[in-house]
Design a protein around this nucleic acid. Structure first.
Lengths: 246, 246
DNA sequence: ATTAAATACATGTCCGGACATATTGAGTCT
DNA sequence: AGACTCAATATGTCCGGACATGTATTTAAT
């Protein structure tokens, strides 16, 4: 018996069983041989067989119950990854910490382009809070942010100025009790224009990272939108995706 | 002797260790006692200790290496925000589907810059699979991808060519049984150089989106790295984050 | 026939041992 | 110092056994 690769025995068994399942030899809903039976089939110990079965279980291919044996649950390993992060702040990883410096707060009318970005009807009114994110260490700007909120929340302006290190959405949650149920995020590359370049202290035409975030409440209503631009060399978005638990 | 709660001994040990880590008694970066040492501490067998450690490993709390012991990697965050997305493929959203067209497959040595990006020691050998992602509708290239895998998986080359619409990581899973447990992703903006611009059929100096992905197995070992560049106007990364129901 | 108790069974937990393998670090030699 | 060899060491893999526990089936009682 020749081993094709230097691989743990239990891993090979797991692979064979996986293939047997994906190929349909063990259909979904069927129960595959018991542990002792598999021990005989692969001429190995129960410990090894269990290690293999555990792998299948982690992939969500099978489920196991005390006297019912191991049941095939799915024909394909779940390719279902979900980000694992403690909080939203962790999603955006700056080199070091940074603070928000509010530049202007004014009411505007969403038209055309902006309205589409905000996912709302054209002509609706919004309160725009423009701010600069400045790295606390180097004092250089790392990003420009326009936050759009319902004019109803006008008073939030002062609070935002007073709390330079808290997300606007968190402030709204705290003050108005409108909770974020879902966030949609789009990340794209863009070219930094002249005006923006001046604000960010970079040369125009440079590559930048644009992040659009829409904040939805439980009713599915957008109540905050943020649009951020970061110079290419001063920012990156990092995240971890873990296979979701069975 | 009446125990207070749910019994499995290894589970209790796992819980105690988890608490010890979250409380900071074992700080991130530190190495906790060896298996035999823990056997003595908890007065149990090595098998049981290993079962407990395996649990911590699956939670992403620790990583284990052959002679380096068990290292604390994370301080157990309480999953406040529970972002969700359907699958990895959905994570990269473009208008329509696209196909991979392999350009070249060759062995290279990771040096300096690349080694750092790959998160490995300099001088190590990797198999590089360069490919172009082409939009099926417009037939225009939407991205250039360099996938780096262990030269051990050299045969994967043919398979990759044959399956132009499947992720390389999925192909490795199927063929070699090495499963992805975690993906780390970094997104940044960059400027597209001359060579790359030619390949992507855009003008040089244009802004581009660079996505670095590192694929880890259950043991915390990197076994695949992909580096993708997308022209600014042809690609965006979209995702939804949902608050966990709790 | 319906319900309740006894029983067989498959997986779960745990033990103590053995050898394999890879990484570390000390010692050795240019 | 630097490159190399080699042994110590901690984890990885695997064995064969033992008893516990929950689930299903069978059997007995209502």
């Amino acid at each position: 018996m020749k081993k094709t690769a230097a691989k743990p025995h239990f891993s090979e068994i797991a692979q064979e069983l996986t293939e047997a399942i994906t190929s349909g030899r063990y259909p979904v809903g069927s129960v595959l041989p018991g542990e002792l039976e598999l021990c005989g089939l692969y001429n190995t110990s129960r410990h090894t067989v269990r290690a293999a079965l555990q792998e299948l279980q982690q992939l969500g291919l099978v489920s196991r119950k005390k006297n019912a044996g191991t049941r095939v649950e799915s024909a394909a390993p779940k390719n279902d990854f979900r980000p694992s992060l403690s909080s939203l702040e962790d999603l955006i990883q700056f080199g070091s910490s940074n603070v928000r410096v509010v530049q202007s707060i004014e009411e505007t009318t969403a038209s055309g382009e902006l309205a589409k970005a905000l996912g709302c009807a054209g002509g609706s009114r919004w309160l725009r809070i423009s701010s600069l994110r400045v790295d606390s260490a180097s004092q250089r700007p790392v990003g420009w942010t326009d936050v759009y909120v319902d004019p109803l929340y006008a008073e939030i302006g002062e609070v935002v100025r007073a709390s330079p290190d808290t997300l606007v959405s968190t402030l709204i949650e705290r003050r108005y009790g409108r909770h974020v149920a879902e966030i949609r995020q789009v990340i794209r590359a863009m070219t930094i224009g002249e005006e923006m370049a001046r604000a960010l202290q970079v040369s125009p035409g440079m590559a930048g990272l644009e992040i659009l975030r829409q904040y939805f409440d439980a009713a599915g209503q957008i109540f905050e939108v943020s649009l951020t631009v970061h110079p290419a060399d001063r920012f990156a978005v990092a995240m971890r995706l873990q296979r979701s638990a069975a």
